[in-house]
Amino acid sequence: MIPSALSYTKAGTLDEALAAVAAGARPLAGGQSLVPMMRLRLAAPEGLVDLGGLAELVGICEDGDELAVGAMTTHRSVAADPQILASCHVVAQAASGVGSLVIRNRGTIGGSLGHADPHADLPAALLAAGGAVIVRSSRGERRIEADDLVTSYLTTSLASDELITQVRLPKGAARSAYAKFHRRAIDWSIVGVGVTIGSAGTRVAVTGVGDRPLRATGFEDVINAGGSLDEAVAQAGTGMSPLDDLDGSAEYKLHLVGVLARQAYTEASGR
């Protein structure tokens, strides 16, 4: 199929992009989720504003105790960046497993976070790392912590005139890992688990078991109280209610949460 009729503009400046978004246009980042959805008519935006020409939204640099990643930085760049690999491994590892290489060449970190698919890897990885996003509108700029970013299926806490411009990754998330299970490279994760062992304790986040990425508080509470990994794994799915669907039963998905949490925690411990 082909997308519904639409009006496309390519933003020459960030201000142009913000004005278009405020006027109702849907931002087009890498388009690796949005364009396929438009093709299937699952999405039919009347207006699109292409962010592909905004060089200021691409790149990775250090800023204090965080790494500042431009929203239009591709998954391939994030996955290969030495600073992210060293300081916030969970995000680089999650980026390395998104779709296939041809998708990672176009797909962006800001696009994935803004799209907020309930099976996406980046929102869970950012949540596990304890990162944040910087969003901009004509009214100014604000920071949204990963815990507050995704609110439901394909829905974030951004206002309708706001755009993610930057992703903030803590440099203290070196001991971290991301483990996922899916059938083919190009499939979404059935379940994915990110783990960060930080100075303030262990954070664990899971994708694929709810309408948004969820903290595995059962696992975190046991580990942060000094309990064993076996005890933590037994509590990994506490409070989660995944759906029975074509990917598997709820019971199977909760089993995956434990298996992948163990795998990611073990890998993070060795880093």
């Binding site: 390519k10 087009l28 364009v35 093709r39 592909g52 041809v102």
Partner: peptide, 28 residues
């Protein structure tokens, strides 16, 4: 029709991409 198969892979400015997941106007 689902960005699954890779048959439409071409190079855009030297990088392999899916031509089914890009609007022609983006290649202007």
């Amino acid at each position: 029709d689902t960005s699954t198969c890779g048959c439409c892979t071409v190079h855009l400015n030297g990088e392999a991409i899916l031509s089914c997941s890009l609007l022609a106007v983006q290649a202007d």
